[in-house]
Every structure is written in structure tokens, then in C-alpha cells.
């Protein structure tokens, strides 16, 4: 048998997820429990994100899948193929052309618009987890807005490293109420959490969904004398010379050679197509 229900999940399951999504949007940053299903991929590959995407997709949608900024790595390719096969939706690598974007650990460089949905894959939704292992206790702390512990983590960072060394999954406060783990995006992306697009977060193994509605206030936690800083590698992209994008460092040989390239492959390719080139661009492009 080769006929899947549209987007793999059955209609009742999608309905259940949509209800959780509505609640998540109504209470920004709050982790809504949902009955996560077994998906035909291992935990850690984005089972939460896939379920949220499946519940959001319509036949008219255009889907883009990002893995660490790239469109062509295993995770992105396999999830894109999955929805091509089960939902027959159009797929794209262009950020601008997509209506639903599922992402792992990055926010696209290009600003998102009001008619787009960004779906995050989340490994551990609980920002307080490594400080307070008891779920009963962390839920109570969220309910009573007791977030002093989150600053203890940042305090430890400064005490040990001299600065806030948390570089990804940097905790944020949503709409002045809930402290949220923005999934392991680099803290460079944190300012982009205030966006025109709807942002949904799905954690499959942990069975939680949460959301940031468009134009919601999202503040990265910090200290008065150690303010938040959206850091990145201090280089220009070696392919498109962009200085304002998040960069991957790529080791090129065993003699210390390395290059920095935009982690957002679509954005980098777009810049190269419009004539930007960097230090290591192919010669025929510069000629």
C-alpha cells in the first residue's frame, strides 16, 4: 500500500496537535503538553517539528526545510523527501518562496513575513532542566514565575569564563512572562525571534509544543553589567563576503587551513548570484 493520509498523520492526530498549537499561541512561551506520536524517524531527528509541520501543512503550501542553516544536509533532505512523498506539497530552498519552513538550530537570515510559519525542532524544551531536574518543580517555577535560577546559570558562566559563555539555546523571556528555550539556535539569532512570522516549537520526545506569535516581545536574559550580545565569528563570508550573517567555520585541510561561510546556504547563494564574491570564491566567478 502506498497511499498515506495527507502529511502522514491521521486527521484526529492533526486535530489534537492543532488544539495544542492554538493553546500555545494563546499563551506565548508556555509549554503545552501533547500526545506525541511515533514517527518513522528516530528521536532527535525532528519528530516534534515534523508533527507540527504535518498539522500546519495544506496542499497549497510550499515547504522549506533547514538543517543548521543548510538545505542540503541529511536531516533537511530526508524531511523534505518525507513530505514530498506523504503530502505531495511543493518544496523549495528559497526562504522567500516558502510558506512553511521547518528548521533545525537556525533562523533564516532573510527577514520572515506575516504569511510564513517557522517550525522549530526542539530537543529539550525546558530551559531550567539542567539546573532543576524535577519536572514537578520546574512546572511550579514556571507557574509562579520563579526564574531566579535561570540567572544562576548565567552567573556561573561569568564566574567561570568571565563572560556569558552560553552561545546557543540562550534563554529568553517571552512577552514579560514565560522563560523559554528558543531551541539550540545560536544566540546570534535571538534578536530575530521578534518576527512578523508565526513561530512554532515542537519537541517530540518531550511531548511539548510552544509558540511565539508574530510581533511578540522576546527579551534575552542578561545582567545589568553583562548585557546580552548577539555574537558571531569576527570574519566575512569567504564565498559572498557578507559581514552581517552567522558563519560556519570549515576546516579545509590538515595544515590549519579554514574558511568561514554563511551557515544559511540559500542566503549565501542568493548573494553570490547577485555578484557578491569572497576571498575563496571560484576564479571564474571573480573573472
Amino acid at each position: 500500500m502506498s497511499d498515506y493520509n495527507f502529511a502522514y498523520l491521521d486527521e484526529q492526530t492533526k486535530r489534537m496537535i492543532r488544539r495544542a498549537l492554538l493553546k500555545a499561541v494563546a499563551v506565548p512561551g508556555y509549554q503545552v503538553p501533547f500526545a506525541s506520536r511515533e514517527m518513522p524517524m528516530p528521536y532527535g531527528w525532528g519528530t516534534g517539528g515534523v508533527q507540527v509541520t504535518a498539522a500546519c501543512l495544506t496542499p497549497d503550501d510550499t515547504l522549506k526545510v533547514i538543517d543548521q542553516g543548510a538545505d542540503d544536509t541529511t536531516n533537511a533532505v530526508s524531511i523534505r523527501k518525507f513530505f514530498e512523498k506523504t503530502a505531495h506539497v511543493a518544496t523549495t530552498e528559497k526562504t522567500r518562496a516558502a510558506s512553511v519552513i521547518q528548521t533545525r538550530h537556525r533562523i533564516p537570515e532573510e527577514p520572515l513575513t506575516a504569511d510564513q510559519i517557522l517550525v522549530y525542532q526542539v530537543p529539550i524544551p525546558e530551559p531550567l532542566r539542567f539546573l532543576e531536574p524535577r519536572e514537578t518543580e520546574t512546572r511550579r517555577m514556571h507557574a509562579l514565575e520563579e526564574y531566579g535560577l535561570m540567572h544562576v546559570k548565567l552567573y556561573e558562566d561569568i564566574a567561570r569564563h568571565g563572560h556569558i559563555a552560553t552561545a546557543y539555546a540562550y534563554p529568553v523571556k517571552v512577552e514579560g512572562r514565560y522563560v523559554m528555550d528558543p531551541s539550540p539556535i545560536p544566540k546570534f539569532d535571538n534578536p530575530k525571534l521578534e518576527s512578523a512570522a508565526l513561530q512554532l516549537f515542537g519537541a517530540g520526545r518531550e511531548q511539548r509544543i510552544y509558540a511565539i506569535p508574530p510581533h511578540t516581545r522576546v527579551v534575552s536574559l542578561d545582567f545589568e553589567d553583562h548585557p546580552f550580545e548577539a555574537s558571531k565569528a569576527d570574519h566575512a563570508c569567504d564565498l559572498c563576503s557578507a559581514r552581517h550573517t552567522y558563519l560556519d567555520e570549515v576546516i579545509t585541510d590538515d595544515a590549519g587551513g579554514r574558511m568561514f561561510v554563511c551557515s544559511d546556504t540559500d542566503y549565501c547563494a542568493g548573494r553570490q548570484a547577485t555578484g557578491h564574491h569572497g576571498r575563496l570564491s571560484p576564479q571564474e566567478a571573480t573573472a
Binding site: 531566579g148 535560577l149 544562576v152 567561570r160 545582567f223
Partner: peptide
Amino acid sequence: VSAGGNVGERLMAVGARHYG
């Protein structure tokens, strides 16, 4: 958590936000 963090936790819990 370090000794300093342990002592500081109660301060941060009541709203202290100045590391120094």
C-alpha cells in the same frame, strides 16, 4: 553550582540583576 552561585541564588530569586 559554585559557592558564589549558591549564595547568589536567593538574591537573584528576589530580582538582583547586577553581577558585580
